[in-house]
């Protein structure tokens, strides 16, 4: 019994592996140039968020992205999960006012509370579209999960701009690029409405990290990856425990099964 079983397991494993490879290659084959793979701190079965990078990324979001992009699923209180204290969060939001209704039903501005979701730059989709040449900037709450290649794509977009004078004539012709268009290597169709948002020294980091374009893009991607799935570390931690437990239980079940069948083989 033992040998054929081991062989079967091997064969099914090989089939599973082969179908994965086929699947991955199949995905890679379609679409525009795909962004280069970068190593992220949160990748792999034991990967965690780099808290310092994510905090810097929050600063980039707050000072740059937040002017146009909402982050409507994240609340200020969630920032404590990035290692900020409750008082630091209160300090961060002390100048933010949000619109609410008072007891008489009239709209009033009140100071933001930690339980509030991130303030949106525009009151609604239509207003956001109207202020941005007809297309509302997407909400960034789950952006890393909502794009193929996830973090690599976000980082690719932020660093993938090519100025007009660096484009080849062939590219200009093929994609019909005008002087005012923003050309991005990794955006499907290449012409992206968003002007290059980041540049060297766009922000000044409190921890002394040099704010290069690369650094800012990587940091804000780390932050957005966290925003997309704040419970990721919990998920992986639980997963390690669950799988170790299941392997132990499967091993014992196998021993029991063999014992029960001992006289039938």
């Amino acid at each position: 019994m033992r040998k054929p079983f081991a062989r079967n397991l091997l064969v099914s494993g090989a089939i599973a592996l082969a179908s994965f490879t086929v699947g991955t290659v199949a995905i890679a084959a379609g679409g525009t140039e795909h962004p280069p793979h970068r190593h992220w701190h949160f990748q792999g079965p034991f990967g965690t968020f780099d808290r310092a990078a994510a905090q810097r990324g929050f600063q980039v979001y707050q000072e740059v992205c937040a002017a146009c992009h909402s982050l409507s699923l994240v609340a200020y209180r969630n920032l404590t999960e990035l290692g900020l204290t409750e008082n630091q969060v209160k300090g961060l939001i002390k100048d933010i006012t949000v619109t609410d209704l008072n007891d008489e039903g009239a709209p009033v501005d009140r100071p933001a509370r930690p339980s509030d979701r991130f303030k949106k730059p525009f009151p609604n989709q239509a207003a956001a579209a109207a202020a941005n040449n007809g297309k509302a900037p997407p909400d960034l709450s789950v952006i890393v999960k909502a794009r193929e290649y996830g973090p690599d794509y976000i980082y690719g977009i932020l660093t993938g701009y090519v100025p007009y004078d660096k484009l080849t004539p062939a590219q200009i012709k093929e994609f019909d690029v005008k002087k005012d268009d923003n050309f991005n290597k990794y955006f499907p169709g290449h012409k992206i409405a968003m002007a290059p948002p980041l540049s060297d020294d766009k922000v000044t980091y409190a921890d002394g990290t040099k704010a290069t374009l690369d650094q800012e893009a990587a940091d804000v991607t780390e932050f957005l990856a966290w925003a997309s799935e704040p419970h990721m570390e919990d998920r992986k931690r639980t997963g390690v425990r669950v799988i170790l437990f299941l392997i132990a239980l499967a091993g014992m079940m196998y021993a029991v099964k063999r014992m029960v069948w001992a006289d039938k083989h």
């Binding site: 132990a248 239980l249 014992m252 079940m253 021993a255 029991v256 014992m259």
Partner: peptide, 11 residues
């Protein structure tokens, strides 16, 4: 056998 059964059941 009993030990294995009980241990598996407990787990």
């Amino acid at each position: 056998r009993d030990f294995l059964m009980v241990a598996t059941g407990a787990l």
